[in-house]
C-alpha cells in the first residue's frame, strides 16, 4: 500500500545541502495561506504515501506524510476510531504531514488535546539530508528529547516530516450538541464554569448569539449531562463548519485573524466566532495589525492572520526567543534550506 520515496527525498535534500540551495516543502497545498511565501526548489511530499502500521487495538497509526488526511480519517473511521484533535483540512488535498507541520487542531482542542498531544513518533529528514527517527509507537517514551512534538507546528522550518506515529482514540458512542442564547461574555463564563465540573464536554463555541456545547461519551453520561446543562438540542454538523471555517459567522469575511488567548481573558475586540471555551477567537474587523497584536499580547495571547493583508502572518517573537529559534533552526538545518522565512522572517 502506498509508496516509500524516502530515498529520493534524502537524495534531493542532500544535494540541496551540498549546493546550499533553498527548499520549499509542498504537501496538498491546502494551507498555503498560513505563512509567508515559500521560496526555493519544491520538495513534494505527496508521492510519499501509505499507512505503514495501524493496529486499532494499539491506538496508534503510523503513516507516511504524503497520505491524504481524508484517507487517514477514513481508515480510522472504519475501525470506529478518530484523530481526537479533529484537525481542520481546508480542502480535500490536505495531507497528514501538512496537518502535523501546521499543528492545527479543531473544536475538541481544549478538552481532548492538540495535534502535538497525540504525536508519538516522527521520521524526519533534516537539513543535512539525514533521515532520522524520534519517538516511536508507544504511549510513554522518555528516551531523548521529544523531537516528535517539537516538529509539530514547526511549519517545515526544521526539516521534512516523512512519517508520523499518532495516538488515536475510539469515536465517542454518543454525541449531542446543545444550543442556548447568550452574549459572547456570558458564553465564555458558562463554558469555563462548566469546564470546572466533571462533565463529558468535548467542544464549545459561540457565534451569532448562540452558545454551543458538545457532549461526547457514553450515552447515559451524555444524556445526564444534557439534562443538567439544559438548552436546545442542535445539529452536530455545526462543528464541522466551525472547524473548516465555513460557518456563516466567518465564511465570507475577507479579513480573518485567529486570536489565541487565555480562555477566560477579557478582550476588547468584537469577535463574531469564539471557540475553545474562549481560547480561540476569530476577529474579522479592521483594527490595525500593531494595535490588534498589542491588545492580544496584553492578555497573554497571540494573533495569526488567516485571511487579508498584514505585515506578518504569525505573531513576532521577543528578541531572546527569536535568537533561540534561530539557533534551534541552525541545529536541524545548518544551511537554512527549509521553508526559509515562511514561519518567522528571522529563520
Amino acid at each position: 500500500m502506498g509508496q516509500d520515496i524516502t530515498q529520493t527525498l534524502v537524495e534531493q535534500i542532500a544535494q540541496a545541502h551540498q549546493e546550499a540551495r533553498p527548499l520549499a516543502i509542498h504537501g496538498g497545498g491546502t494551507k498555503g495561506f498560513l505563512g509567508h511565501d515559500l521560496v526555493g526548489e519544491v520538495v513534494d511530499i505527496t508521492g510519499h504515501q501509505g499507512i505503514v502500521n495501524y493496529q486499532p487495538v494499539e491506538l496508534v497509526m503510523t503513516v507516511r506524510a504524503g497520505t491524504p488526511l481524508a484517507e487517514v480519517e477514513a481508515a480510522l473511521a472504519e475501525k470506529g476510531q478518530c484523530l481526537a484533535f479533529e484537525p481542520p483540512s481546508f480542502g480535500s488535498a490536505a495531507t497528514i504531514g501538512g496537518t502535523i507541520a501546521t499543528g492545527l487542531s479543531g473544536p475538541a482542542r481544549p478538552y481532548t488535546g492538540s495535534a502535538r498531544d497525540f504525536m508519538l513518533g516522527v521520521r524526519v529528514i533534516n537539513g543535512q539530508g539525514q533521515a532520522l527517527r524520534f519517538g516511536g509507537e508507544v504511549m510513554k517514551n522518555v528516551a531523548g528529547y521529544d523531537v516528535s512534538r517539537l516538529m509539530t507546528a514547526s511549519h517545515g522550518s526544521l526539516g521534512l516530516i516523512t512519517e508520523v506515529s499518532l495516538k488515536v482514540l475510539p469515536v465517542a458512542k454518543s454525541v449531542k450538541t446543545l444550543a442556548t442564547s447568550a452574549s459572547a461574555n456570558e458564553a465564555i463564563a458558562l463554558f469555563n464554569r462548566l469546564a470546572g465540573q466533571p462533565l463529558p464536554i468535548s467542544a464549545t463555541a459561540w457565534a451569532e448569539g448562540q452558545a454551543y456545547i458538545r457532549l461526547s461519551g457514553a450515552a447515559s453520561a451524555v444524556d445526564a449531562a444534557a439534562k443538567q446543562i439544559g438548552g436546545e438540542l442542535a445539529d452536530n454538523s455545526v462543528w464541522a463548519s466551525l472547524k473548516e471555517l465555513t460557518h456563516n459567522s466567518v465564511a465570507e469575511q475577507s479579513t480573518l485573524w485567529r486570536l489565541s488567548v487565555p480562555q477566560t481573558a477579557s478582550l476588547d475586540l468584537d469577535c463574531p466566532l469564539i471557540e475553545w471555551g474562549g481560547g480561540q477567537r476569530w476577529y474579522t474587523g479592521d483594527a490595525p495589525e500593531q494595535e490588534l497584536r498589542a491588545k492580544v499580547e496584553a492578555v497573554g495571547g497571540h494573533a495569526t492572520l488567516y485571511r487579508g493583508q498584514a505585515e506578518r502572518v504569525f505573531h513576532p517573537l521577543n528578541p531572546a526567543m527569536s535568537a533561540l529559534h534561530s539557533r534551534i533552526k541552525h541545529s536541524f538545518d545548518p544551511k537554512a534550506l527549509f521553508n526559509v522565512g515562511r514561519f518567522h522572517p528571522e529563520f
Binding site: 489565541s260 497571540h302 526567543m321
Partner: peptide, 15 residues
C-alpha cells in the same frame, strides 16, 4: 508556552 492553548513560535515546551 502560555495560558493560551498555544504560543507563538516552535513548541519549545515539548523540548
Amino acid at each position: 508556552g502560555g495560558e493560551s492553548l498555544d504560543a507563538p513560535g516552535l513548541d519549545l515546551m515539548a523540548a
